[in-house]
Structure formats: C-alpha cells, structure tokens
C-alpha cells in the first residue's frame, strides 16, 4: 500500500505544482513507483510543467464518468521508469468532482504505486477538499512572506481537522541573501510560527523557470541548487535521514556586506 500525499498551500503561486513535479520525478529517479495527480480541475498545469501536455488523452474526469479505465488514463513519463501522470480535466470545474470520487481514485492508485502525489489547487474550497480527500499525509508549501505563511497556517488547521498526519513543510523561494540582510524570515522564524516539521528548503532558483519553460523538471539537472534541494526532499520522504544543510546565508563576506546594507 503506497503513500498518498497531498501537496497544498492555501495561497496560490507559491510552488505546489513545481514541487509536485520535481518531488515526483525525484522519487522516480530514486527507483520508486510514483503517480502524480493533478487535482486542479479547470486550471490544470502539472502536465505542462512536466512536459507531458501533448500526450494527455484521458483525465480523472473521464475515469469518474467511466469513459476509460484508471490505468489507461495514466500517462507514462518516458524519461524515467516508474513515473506516471493523471491529468485533470480542463473543461470541467472543481464542483464537477466529489471528494469521495477523488478519494477512490487515489486509494486505487495507492495499491499499485509507492507514492501518489496530489497537486492541490490554491484556496480552501472544494478543490482543496477534493485534493486532500484521499490523503494520508500532507506537504504544505509556503514562501517566506506574511501572506503565504498566514494562509499556510489556515490550511494546516484544516488538514489537522481532517486527521491528516504528518503534515510537513517545504519552504520555497528562500533567499539566503535576503535572510542575511534581515529582509526575509529564516526557517526558524517560519517554523516557530507554523509549528510543523520542515521537509526541506528550496532556494529561489532561476533554473525553476527555465526548466518549466522546457518542460523538463529541474531534478534532471544535477547541478542546480533547486534540483539538489528537491533530491534531498525526496530522500527524506523515503525515510532517509538527510540533514537540512545550513544555507550559506552567513558567509564571512556576506556578513560584512550585510552589516553595511541591513535595516531594509
């Protein structure tokens, strides 16, 4: 029985889809069987971020409407073994799906995969209920700014209420320079507020944008800091104990620079 993990946030645009695509690919690169599920019905993006948009034939809605078998709706990612995508319907909206229907799909996928990663839409409404309906665990993605963190706290409350446990945090678009100059909260500040466990920190990385442009998840490029961050996160998800590296936020030189430029 695989793990069903919902990737969610509350606030939009903080990196749920990026995280689902990269974590899913990274887990497959580690030899796991993974299906990534787009739960953003009507605003689907996971297919294009992963570069699989031209190969979608069926969606989860077709499965619900019994137009096709679940296994037939899965699009195989040919670049790595063990990775498939279940796309969301683009012509429907979130209310066309019931949480129980999504739950049934996720549970069925969990029987044949090590990991089912569900990319949740933003918000706390129906789309979120659908995405989290079948989840055993949750990954909450946030950026280190006040509105994203406030919304993350709200989502954490809803997940806890639904009995989803554990709930882990990905801190995305982190900038060691801004933390060093005192303009961005660091991981301790964020964890102190949200009070959940940290799964990993993903730095602000232009590679995220270029890899999305190309439809090739960042984790295929070993060198980039974002790629390395997602690979470490994937290893932690599989249960390996990988320490969260001290981000080079307080190197000697940057310390001096920061001393002169702080108080922003």
């Amino acid at each position: 029985m695989g793990k069903i993990i919902v990737v969610t946030s509350g606030k939009g645009g903080v990196g749920k889809t990026t995280s689902t695509a990269n974590l899913g690919t990274a887990l497959a690169l580690l030899g796991k069987t993974v299906v990534v599920v787009d739960a953003d019905v009507g605003l689907r993006n996971l297919d294009i971020v992963m570069g699989l948009e031209s190969r979608i034939v069926y969606t989860s809605m077709d499965v619900i409407e019994k137009q096709c078998e679940l296994s037939k709706a899965l699009v195989k990612d040919r670049r790595v073994d063990g990775l498939t995508l279940l796309a969301a319907s683009q012509k429907n909206n979130k209310d066309d799906m019931q949480p129980e229907e999504m739950k049934a799909i996720c549970e069925k996928l969990g029987e044949t995969h090590d990991y089912v990663l569900v990319d949740s839409p933003a918000g706390i409404e129906r789309g979120f209920s659908n995405a989290s309906a079948g989840a055993d665990e949750a990954i909450v993605v946030t950026t280190p700014d006040v509105s994203a963190i406030r919304d993350a706290d709200r989502i954490i409350g809803l997940l806890q209420h639904a009995g989803i446990e554990p709930i882990n945090l990905i801190l995305n678009r982190f900038s060691p320079q801004l933390v060093g100059s005192g303009s961005m909260m660091d991981q301790d500040d964020v964890l102190d507020i949200l009070n959940i466990d940290l799964l990993g920190i993903v730095p602000e990385d232009p590679g995220v944008i270029t890899s999305t442009n190309r439809g090739i998840p960042l984790v295929y490029e070993d060198a980039s800091p974002g790629s390395q961050a997602y690979m470490r996160i994937a290893r932690r998800v599989t249960g390996q104990r990988i320490p969260i590296p001290e981000l080079e936020q307080r190197g000697f030189l940057s310390n001096i620079v920061n001393w002169f430029t702080r108080n922003r």
Binding site: V146, R150, R154, G157, S183, M185, D186, D192, I193, R264
Partner: peptide, 18 residues
C-alpha cells in the same frame, strides 16, 4: 529588521485566526 516585524505581526494575526 523587517523580517522581525513580519514575524511579530504574523504571530499576532495567526493567534487571532486560530
């Protein structure tokens, strides 16, 4: 530092939200 101000403001508003 503005990061400290952010943290203090968040702590308050989140307590209230909760």
């Amino acid at each position: 530092k503005s990061s400290n101000i952010a943290k203090q403001r968040l702590k308050l508003v989140i307590t209230q939200d909760r």
